[in-house]
Deep mutational scan, measured.
Amino acid sequence: LRLEVKLGQGCFGEVWMGTWNGTTRVAIKTLKPGTMSPEAFLQEAQVMKKLRHEKLVQLYAVVSEEPIYIVTEYMSKGSLLDFLKGETGKYLRLPQLVDMAAQIASGMAYVERMNYVHRDLRAANILVGENLVCKVADFGLARLIEDNEYTARQGAKFPIKWTAPEAALYGRFTIKSDVWSFGILLTELTTKGRVPYPGMVNREVLDQVERGYRMPCPPECPESLHDLMCQCWRKEPEERPTFEYLQAFL
């Protein structure tokens, strides 16, 4: 395994491009020591290896001592969030954005069929390849993070704006909380990567959403798509659509 080009840095580690087995181009995620327990990670990795779908980033291998390494397929255009905010983002029109959403829903419909939960679905965790191919990455890892700023769910590192209220408040993460996050991801797509709930801080978002506030229809977004977002944001988790439905609708 060779680490060649550093692609990015996040709160919990770095991402590199490299070569595996001398020939395969891969992405390598390294986790800061202390982010998660190697034992817990190894268990999760076994499950992650079983998830194989064309719209999920394929896991190739893991190094399960500290520092933990995760070796996955390489996606040339990086994260969907950076892609939307970058040069190419300007030229993306609604049909392409909807197609990308459908690809993500397709990957998540598979996660749904496998009775698995992602827990951290957002544009930053979707990767883009050639020809606007989108794949879901980092599934299941969020559960293992041991950082206090994260586990408190009120901490600075927790993605509260993407998280369903029952998950943020009571830790009830299910495929239905993933559906909520998918609704937020749809706003990221239609606004080219704007942060959700602009002008609001995490605490406010939690309070307002509890009181029934939902983001309005983004500019140039059809009402039918906003309606779909609002279905994803129904207060009762069981009233939210399935990913199978979302995939078919898109």
Rank of each mutant, 00 (worst) to 15 (best):
4 E>A: 15
6 K>A: 15
11 C>R: 01
12 F>S: 01
13 G>F: 03
15 V>W: 02
15 V>Y: 01
16 W>S: 15
18 G>R: 01
18 G>A: 14
18 G>V: 03
19 T>C: 12
19 T>D: 12
20 W>V: 14
20 W>P: 09
22 G>R: 11
26 V>N: 06
28 I>N: 04
31 L>S: 10
33 P>F: 14
33 P>R: 08
35 T>S: 11
36 M>E: 07
42 L>Y: 12
46 Q>C: 09
46 Q>K: 06
48 M>R: 02
48 M>I: 00
49 K>M: 08
50 K>C: 13
50 K>W: 05
50 K>G: 07
54 E>F: 12
56 L>I: 14
57 V>T: 09
61 A>G: 06
62 V>P: 00
63 V>H: 09
65 E>P: 13
68 I>P: 05
70 I>M: 03
71 V>Y: 00
79 S>P: 04
81 L>R: 14
82 D>Q: 09
83 F>R: 07
83 F>Q: 07
84 L>H: 03
92 L>T: 11
93 R>T: 06
94 L>R: 08
94 L>F: 07
95 P>A: 08
96 Q>M: 15
97 L>V: 09
98 V>Q: 07
99 D>W: 14
100 M>T: 09
102 A>P: 04
103 Q>H: 10
105 A>G: 06
106 S>C: 14
108 M>E: 07
108 M>Q: 06
109 A>K: 13
109 A>R: 15
110 Y>M: 06
111 V>G: 01
111 V>W: 15
113 R>M: 11
113 R>K: 11
115 N>G: 11
116 Y>V: 15
116 Y>D: 01
117 V>M: 05
118 H>F: 04
119 R>S: 02
120 D>P: 02
122 R>P: 01
128 V>H: 04
128 V>D: 02
128 V>N: 03
133 V>N: 08
134 C>K: 01
134 C>A: 12
134 C>R: 00
137 A>N: 03
139 F>L: 02
143 R>N: 03
143 R>V: 04
144 L>F: 11
145 I>R: 04
146 E>D: 06
148 N>L: 05
148 N>Q: 08
150 Y>I: 02
150 Y>R: 02
151 T>E: 06
152 A>N: 03
152 A>G: 04
153 R>C: 09
153 R>P: 10
156 A>E: 04
157 K>W: 09
158 F>Q: 02
158 F>T: 02
161 K>Q: 00
164 A>S: 13
170 Y>V: 08
170 Y>W: 11
170 Y>M: 09
173 F>A: 04
173 F>E: 00
176 K>Y: 14
180 W>T: 00
182 F>R: 00
186 L>N: 03
186 L>A: 08
186 L>D: 00
187 T>S: 07
187 T>G: 07
188 E>S: 02
188 E>C: 00
194 R>K: 08
198 P>T: 06
200 M>F: 08
200 M>T: 07
203 R>M: 13
208 Q>L: 15
208 Q>T: 11
216 P>A: 09
217 C>Q: 13
218 P>E: 10
221 C>I: 08
223 E>A: 12
231 Q>L: 11
233 W>F: 05
234 R>V: 08
235 K>S: 12
236 E>C: 13
236 E>T: 12
237 P>V: 13
237 P>C: 11
238 E>Q: 14
239 E>A: 12
242 T>A: 12
242 T>D: 15
243 F>Y: 11
244 E>H: 11
245 Y>R: 15
246 L>W: 05
246 L>I: 09
249 F>I: 10
